[in-house]
Design a protein around this nucleic acid. Sequence first.
DNA 1: CCATAAATGTCCCGTACGGTAAAAATAAAT
DNA 2: ATTTATTTTTACCGTACGGGACATTTATGG
Lengths: 87, 87
Amino acid sequence: MSKYTPQYGQIRTTEGLGKLARAHRKTRRLTLDTLSGLSDLSPKFLSEFERGKPTAEIGKVLKALRILGLEVIVRPVRSNVKRNQEA
Amino acid sequence: MSKYTPQYGQIRTTEGLGKLARAHRKTRRLTLDTLSGLSDLSPKFLSEFERGKPTAEIGKVLKALRILGLEVIVRPVRSNVKRNQEA
DNA sequence: CCATAAATGTCCCGTACGGTAAAAATAAAT
DNA sequence: ATTTATTTTTACCGTACGGGACATTTATGG
């Protein structure tokens, strides 16, 4: 089990989100520098976000996630909405 | 169809996220003031977040969502991970 | 072990976040 | 139509965000 195995699924904290983003990035063999170029966000920002910075701007976070090929789903806890209708 | 029907599911923008949060809050018959009290976030912040402010702090956004009883799921686009294993 | 790549830290800067309090505007209830 | 409730705006404040440039530290690969 690698230190960098993405734990996809529910996110509760900025730490958890950042860890997932980093792990996912590494599975894609992307450096912070490359992601920086693709997203137009600074390596510094990305590094801080991945380390769980709670004061990061949500617009930039969503952008980073999108560039990484990660989707964000928001729904009620214990949703009755059928999960295969989310796409 | 009400103006405030929550569109649960994938989120791509801060506008979309804010709209969902507002719609959801209203289905719960909560005012911004009440949510403010529950979350310890100011009504001003919440109002701005719901109107899609891209520079809002992600830690506070996640907190607001949690108090609202909304969960956030992050996973690869077109994930091969089975969706009923997310819980 | 060594060289290189990648990530993190430091300094500086311009911009602005989020809270408080109160006023103004808008929406909802009567 | 009027009153009440809710949301948005305004003004002010202390704090800090994110970017650029560069230095330092850590991780990786041979």
